[in-house]
Design a protein around this nucleic acid. Structure first.
Lengths: 122, 122
DNA sequence: CAGAATCCCCTCCGATACTG
DNA sequence: CAGTATCGGAGGGGATTCTG
C-alpha cells in the first residue's frame, strides 16, 4: 500500500490505499478466477510498462492481496493469483464497476479495452 | 476528475478517478446527509490545507458530485452539499468502508478520526 | 470567511537499456 | 521469461503569505 501510516483517517482511505494504485484495480480484475503469468498480464495491460507492472504487483503482494509463485525452472516462470483477501475485495470492484459503467454510459463515454463484467464463475 | 481521457481502460478506473483524490472520499463521506460550509469541512478534515481542500472541492464540483452554493453576503458564506450523482455513489463508499473497517480490525490498526458508519438517515 | 498566490520539494511514472 | 537499473519530466501536495 502507498501510505505507511498505521493509523488511517477513514477505513475508506485504507481501502483506496490498497486498490487505488495506477494499475491495481485492473490487475486484480484480470486475476479474478484466473492464475496468470507475468507475460500474460503484460499482454492484458499493455499500457503498463514492465517496471510499473512489477511495482504494482509487488505492492499487491505486500498487502497480501495476491500470491506470487516462482517456479525454479529455465526459462523463469512466475504465476500470480488472488489470495483469499484478494478475493474478498471482489464485491468492491464489482460495485465500482457497475457505478462506473452507468456513469460512462450516461455520459456517452467509452471503454477502450475488452474488459467485461465477469460471469460469476470461480 | 484527474484523467482527461474520454476513454477509460475500465469503468473501475473511471470510478477511482472520481473518488480517488487525496481527500475526496473523506469529503463525500462528511457530506452524506449534511450541508456543510468551507470552515466546517476544514474542522472536520484538519489534515487538509485550505489549498488542498479547495482543490478537491473544485474537482468534485466539476465532476458534478457536489453542489457549491455561494451566498452573496459579508462575510462570505459558501455551502457544499451532495448532488444526486454524489448521493448515488454512497453504496460504493459504504462497501469500501465495511471492507476497510474489517481489514483494519483484523490487523489491529486504528482509525484516528471520529468518523463512524452513518446511520441510515437522510 | 473563504479562498488565491507563491514557492518548492518530492514522488509518480514513462522511456530506455540491460540481465540472470 | 521475468524482471532490474537509471534517468528525467510532470505534477501532486505542503508551508506560508496575502485578499475581497
Amino acid at each position: 500500500m502507498n501510505s505507511d501510516c498505521t493509523t488511517y483517517h477513514c477505513p475508506v482511505d485504507a481501502t483506496l490505499d490498497m486498490i487505488g494504485g495506477k494499475y491495481k484495480a485492473l490487475i486484480l480484475w484480470h486475476l479474478i478466477g484466473n492464475t496468470l503469468r507475468f507475460g500474460e498480464l503484460r499482454k492484458l495491460i499493455p499500457q503498463a510498462t514492465p517496471k510499473m507492472l512489477t511495482q504494482q504487483l509487488r505492492e499487491l503482494e505486500e498487502d497480501h492481496l495476491i500470491i506470487r509463485t516462482v517456479y525454479p525452472v529455465v526459462p523463469p516462470k512466475v504465476e500470480y493469483m488472488l489470495s483469499d483477501l484478494g478475493n474478498s475485495i471482489r464485491p468492491i470492484l464489482e460495485t465500482m464497476y457497475n457505478w462506473g459503467a452507468d456513469y460512462l454510459r450516461e455520459n456517452g463515454l467509452t471503454v477502450s479495452c475488452s474488459m467485461k463484467f465477469p460471469t460469476k464463475d470461480s
